[in-house]
Every structure is written in C-alpha cells, then in structure tokens.
C-alpha cells in the first residue's frame, strides 16, 4: 500500500472513532444517563463491529495508535496529584489499606470464580 493511501486510511479511521465518540456524547447530552459519553461510544463501536456495520480494518489503524499512547494521555491527571500533597500525607495510611486490601481481594475472587467455572478444550 502506498504511504499516502495508508495515511488517508489512518485519517478515516480517526474520523470513525471521533464519530462514535460524538454519538456517545450526544446520547449522554440528550438522555441524561449517568454514563460518560466516551463509554457509550466504546459500547457503540463494539456493537457496530459485532453487527458488521463497520469493518475492523476501517477503525483499527486509529484504535491501535490511541491504545499505544493511552498511558501518555493520563499523565497530566497524575501530575495533578501535586495539588493534593497535604491531603495525601494526612490520609496515606487509609489510602494504602484500601488500595492493597481491595486489590488482593479482587484478584483472588476473580481468579477463583474463573478457575472454578471455565471450560478447557
């Protein structure tokens, strides 16, 4: 495939992603459901792929790029922690207990249920 053609496909793929994001935000705006528009967009794009309204290769170039750099996009929120130094130094014990206990419990219960019920080929 020529480089220009693959660029155009990437652009088209981004337009698809933004279209589904837009539809999600629009539904959120008019219906007032307590679900963020981008999560509605995620459910909608999965449904559209599942029911063959769009093809995987139409959206994959853009989704791969977005997922590859997703962690970069939430760095600014992490930096926002600097405004809460006092809060964290006051509650750090509580935060650690909640985070560690909850994570271990969630890991164990999830793995246990899946291991007990899953079928093997």
């Amino acid at each position: 495939m020529s480089p220009l053609r693959s660029r155009l496909q990437l652009l088209k793929a981004f337009l698809w992603i933004f279209l589904f994001l837009g539809i999600g935000e629009l539904i959120r705006y008019v219906s007032n459901v307590p679900i963020p528009g981008n999560i509605l967009g995620m459910i909608l794009i999965f449904s559209a792929l599942k029911f063959k309204l769009i093809r995987l290769k139409d959206v994959k170039p853009a989704s791969d790029q977005l997922l590859k750099y997703m962690v970069l996009f939430f760095v600014p929120y992490g930096v926002g922690l600097m405004a809460y130094f006092d809060f964290i130094s006051f509650y750090w014990m509580m935060l650690c207990v909640i985070a560690v206990v909850t994570t271990l419990l969630t890991l164990y219960i999830t793995a246990l249920v899946q291991q007990k019920l899953e079928k093997h080929e």
Binding site: N38, G41, M42, L66, M70, F73, F74, P76
Partner: peptide, 15 residues
C-alpha cells in the same frame, strides 16, 4: 493530551 482519553476509551471498544 488529556483530551485524547475520550477517543482512547472508544478505542477500547475496538480492542
């Protein structure tokens, strides 16, 4: 940069 979190969530649907 944070703005791209929106489309990135939509991309999770593709994944």
């Amino acid at each position: 940069l944070s703005f791209f979190l929106g489309p990135a969530i939509v991309a999770l649907g593709v994944l």
